[in-house]
């Protein structure tokens, strides 16, 4: 099976300080990759390099056979297929929940607004948030915000989802809500790369677990 993501000899430095050294990783369709490690080890940097929120210093990243570091590559199209969920949710504060979810499909995928709202309401209903559709992010709890952030990414029908410590800002109850949602996605064969410190969650969902130590990616048995 062709790898959906291939990372070849990835290096990243900030002000001549190495953050990532010679990272190599192949990810197949449907895999759930957990990346763990101490704070400041470069986990988020690796994830941000995958969708070019950070530009690697050296190396290649292939997504569906295309080198995303190639200047001719349309990175916006790549990002539409590789959506990211952030630790701090980053919901659009000036849009309601349903507008947060439908904004990108309408503007980028040229979906009919009525169809996009219908599909968004379906997602919200499926994950118990339909009554929050017209609420603004400021009115939601942390767990609700993170679930809306995941649904916002899901609405783009991505091939890969990147999770940057999705539950670290949440209390245990809200953490369960979000982890249950991610579990559902995992069972639906979504390719995911998740940064987390929660080992129990990682064991439940992961196909492979890695740790970043000394700026390198080490597989964990």
């Amino acid at each position: 099976m062709q790898n959906i993501i291939s990372i070849k000899h990835l290096f990243k430095t900030f002000n001549n300080m190495p953050i990532l050294k010679d990272i190599n990783l192949d990810i197949a369709q449907g895999e759930r990759i957990i990346i763990t490690g101490p704070s400041g080890s470069g986990k988020s940097t690796l994830l941000r390099c995958l969708n070019l929120l950070e530009t690697p210093t050296e190396g290649d990243i292939y997504f569906m056979g295309q080198n995303i570091l190639d200047p001719h590559c349309d990175i916006h199209k790549v990002r539409q297929k590789m959506c990211m969920v952030f630790q701090q949710f980053n919901l659009f504060l000036n849009f309601s929940v349903i507008d947060n979810i439908t904004l990108a499909p309408i503007k980028l995928l040229a979906k009919d607004p009525t169809q996009a709202r219908y599909e968004a309401r379906g997602l919200l209903e499926r994950f118990g948030l339909l009554n929050k559709a017209e609420y603004y992010p400021a009115q939601l709890s942390g767990g609700q915000k993170q679930r809306v952030a995941i649904l916002r990414a899901l609405a783009m029908s991505p091939k890969v989802m990147l999770f940057d410590e999705p539950t670290s800002a949440l209390d245990p109850f809200m953490k369960n809500e979000v982890q249950n949602l991610i579990n559902v996605l995992g069972h639906e064969n979504m390719t995911m790369i998740i940064i987390t410190h929660d080992i129990d969650f990682a064991k439940n969902i992961a196909t492979r677990i890695f740790s970043i130590e000394n700026h390198q990616l080490i597989p964990v048995q």
Binding site: L53, H76, M84, F86, K107, L108
Partner: peptide, 15 residues
Amino acid sequence: VDIGQYEAGISLGFS
């Protein structure tokens, strides 16, 4: 405006 708003937009595929 929080930089996360910009990053969230970029990560969804907006220019």
